[in-house]
Design a protein around this nucleic acid. Structure first.
Lengths: 186, 186
DNA sequence: GTCTATACGCGGATAGAC
DNA sequence: GTCTATCCGCGTATAGAC
């Protein structure tokens, strides 16, 4: 993979700052410093704070698409179901460090105030729900699994580290009658 | 019940503003205007923005205690289980207008930045989890139900209105083997 | 108790040097 | 491309009148 561009590194810094300090403390100065550029340098790449936010939303959209494609591929290959992939990457402790999880948490934090971020967050959530519904063939079950993932995200926002669910989500899936592996196609 | 004090009305306005506009747009001016007082008037009751936040956290703590007491009483009387009460007041559409739900959403939104709010949010979540675990006698089931409620809250933050789960949470509880009514004591 | 007036600092954004 | 210097508006908080 190509080395990250300057724009990418600035978005990284933005996400980092929102996740660790919260959206209300975000200043162009703080993000620039974290990215290792000056405020002027940042404003060359992103003409305004709003443009910077849009850069992060763009990234989350891309990561969502990529993540869903990965989940679909795994299900088609019979490696693991979409539901399994979804909870594994939401609930599992090691997954918390993934680019997608961190970026999504940042977007959700910002979504409390910025409608544009809320729109992107809902789109990502809706996309997952659609794939889950497709797999389970049942709207309610799909929504249930999605809601569990959403609960995990809320806990991340509130700084809640670990819970029985995050340690034992496989049992939960089993209780809901969701298999670990799908029947392999053809 | 006694008519709300001036302090109460200011906290109301604060909650309202955070829920509808988001925490980043909160200014003393905006809250004062919403409460129908001047900025000077607000600062007489709450000496600083931080004190205003503390006022809201205080209220959430009180509402949490009251809500849990109500749930416990209902379970003891055999009216409805704690789990049933919890999901009814989180998932049910009409419940979204309750003082507790709105205040909790406000605290969670602020918790993205303010650690004090995050502490209060986690305490409230932990308190519910404890009652649920007490009732179900199973940590994982309790956490599962709690996580569903948390998912509902996240969707509220992201502006997600209605979902299969919010319309059909009773079915979900049944699938998890949680009864609607508890055996009445003695 | 509640208001007005004001001090003061901070953050976003522009201009222009290098 | 990236930096420094600067302007300007907004938000918190205080002083003090009524």
């Amino acid at each position: 993979m190509p080395r990250p561009s300057q724009r990418d590194r600035i978005v990284d810094a933005y996400v980092d700052h929102v996740v660790s300090e919260g959206p209300e403390t975000v200043t162009l100065d703080a993000v620039a410093a974290r990215a290792g550029v000056s405020k002027g340098g940042l404003l060359y790449h992103f003409g305004s704070k709003e443009a910077l936010l849009e850069g992060m939303l763009e990234r989350v959209r891309a990561l969502t698409d990529a993540d869903i494609a990965t989940a679909r591929a795994g299900a088609a290959a019979g490696t693991e179901t979409v539901a399994h992939y979804y909870l594994r990457t939401s609930a599992d402790d090691p997954a918390r460090d993934s680019d997608f999880f961190r970026a999504m948490v940042a977007v959700l934090k910002v979504a409390a105030t910025e409608e544009a971020a809320a729109v992107t967050a809902r789109a990502s959530m809706a996309a997952w729900q659609e794939v889950l519904a497709e797999e389970t063939g049942d709207e309610l079950t799909a929504d249930l699994i999605a809601a569990l993932g959403d609960g995990i995200y809320l806990r991340a926002i509130a700084g809640w580290r670990s819970s029985p669910l995050s340690r034992d989500w496989r049992t939960t899936l089993a209780r809901l009658g969701v298999p670990e592996r799908s029947e392999q196609c053809r």
